[in-house]
Design a protein around this nucleic acid. Structure first.
Lengths: 280, 280
DNA sequence: GCGCTCCTTCCGGTGGCCGGAAGCTCGATT
DNA sequence: AATCGAGCTTCCGGCCACCGGAAGGAGCGC
């Protein structure tokens, strides 16, 4: 409907092709030819030709109902994105352990511009329903992982977000720039973000930063639990330890040495991730 | 190097763009501009223009080293592929449980033409090294999931594969058409494929089919364990039960009713997947 | 039957694409 | 330090591949 960044791609053929791909999105996984043409702002015959070529290559697939969907081949190419697969591959075992221990929702996300993109998500069917989805986007200021990524992003990014409008997903979302600035400072100080009822009123998320080779924050992870009856205190150590473990797996220098003291998470509440302690 | 399906895409602009995407692949996650031009068979200036447009949109990203990688935006679009995300999303919890129980490698794959494409993989860092990777391809006849997908594929597909050359990954790979035909019959009869040392000599895989709404086999899953010291007998029931659970989650009619008798997997060896038994 | 939507094919005009060539930036080599 | 080479970027005129209106077919609901 709203021409966000669809046909705007310019009149070049490449732009049109990308416009066609943009027509697909969450909630629009399958489109008819004319649907694509409409969404991409292309004449039907043009769309027909381009879509035909894309389908022949495998970027799109045509279902029995005649509608087009994203094809396996395009998925394959997309899977090569280093910020998804490379990260995911290494982080998975740690996320696994945390998931297993908490039996809730575990998420992995990266930042793209002023939004957070969810790269991986382990969700227990009976866990609290969570809004995000793999490949989905959310505003930075309103989510746990988003606040972490924002807190450790370049100052210019922070200023831009603080300057822009801060949408409220729930009454509890931080929308005041000053409050957000304070929150971010807290996140930097604590190394975790705790967001209660910001995305939806029933869930609470605890997020921590993941660092890469050069020690910059490259991703964030979080655990989402029911808001009621959960004590963040029991979760924070586990999240912190897991994030640290992933950072080490990615080669972060600051995560090299064993966490001084005892941070391996209490075995009682949220069982110590098996890998967090062992290097090899 | 070898012009497999690169520049062949035809002289249309769309073909060139897709050729550029084809330049990336396993083992070629990052390419320089001239590398792309070479792989796609394009003049440098042409590649430069097209790549620039792709990068501006987010289909490609340029690293600090100047090389291009697949961009997050393309990954996002690819994640909409129903055969990856839709399937994955529903299968995950079951795979989780199986992974947790076995602490080995759990894989999920679909068929594309004469190859198997791995859609998901849970790998324990200390488990037996496995050759496949998410987004990777393998021949149908040589892998556990491949044999399952082949056994339940349309007869024409089977004939084509049986007619074509059957490459040998190890001395133990089935390369004789008659033997393969017999193997496939066995897979259909048993509902599982057991492949010992076919991909590499050290690992053994047990695979089972996953059925969709119309009861057709839409995917396959497998567990890969060390060849030495593993008894398939202890794994088969767990794999079967998990595959059945996923089938039910996908709406397969034949997986509706409780498995007659006791197939919920022995709790000892490979702990019963928590979801396999309970519906809601 | 009639109208509707959606899909497919065709074809002539033209504007976007092509790609050679020249200039630039880096780093390696002598 | 000068030279070389590999890779990247920009420019621009000619040409051809792309565009998209129009016409025809298929399927469906009224």
């Amino acid at each position: 409907m709203s021409p966000q960044r669809d046909g705007q791609s310019g009149p070049s053929v490449t732009g049109r092709v990308l416009g066609i791909l943009s027509a697909f999105g969450p909630g629009a996984e399958a489109l008819s030819l004319s649907g694509i043409a409409r969404a991409a702002g292309l004449p039907l015959s043009t769309a027909h030709r381009l879509v035909g070529e894309l389908a022949a290559w495998g970027a799109l697939e045509r279902g029995e109902d005649g509608r087009y969907r994203i094809g396996l081949r395009l998925w394959e190419v997309g899977a090569l994105a280093p910020r998804s697969l490379g990260l995911r591959e290494r982080a998975m075992p740690y996320l696994e352990d945390l998931y297993e221990a908490t039996r809730q929702n575990v998420q992995l996300a990266v930042r793209d511009g002023h939004e957070v993109v969810y790269v991986e998500r382990l969700a227990h069917p009976e866990a609290v329903r969570v809004f995000s989805r793999v490949g989905g986007r959310m505003p930075l200021h309103a989510t746990g992982v988003g606040q972490v990524l924002l807190a450790f992003a370049h100052a210019s990014v922070q200023e831009e977000v603080l300057a822009g409008p801060l949408s409220a997903l729930t009454p509890r979302t931080v929308t005041d720039p000053h409050a957000l600035r304070r929150t971010l400072a807290g996140v930097r100080r604590e190394g975790v973000a705790v967001c209660d009822g910001m995305v939806d009123l029933l869930s609470l998320s605890v997020a921590a930063p993941i660092r890469g080779e050069d020690d910059r924050v490259v991703a964030a992870m979080s655990v989402v639990v029911p808001s009621a009856g959960s004590d963040p205190r029991t979760i924070v150590p586990a999240v912190r330890a897991t994030a640290r473990g992933i950072s080490r797996a990615l080669g972060s220098p600051s995560a090299r040495r064993r966490p001084s003291g005892v941070v391996t998470a209490p075995p009682g509440a949220a069982g110590g991730p098996a890998h967090a302690g062992r290097g090899t």
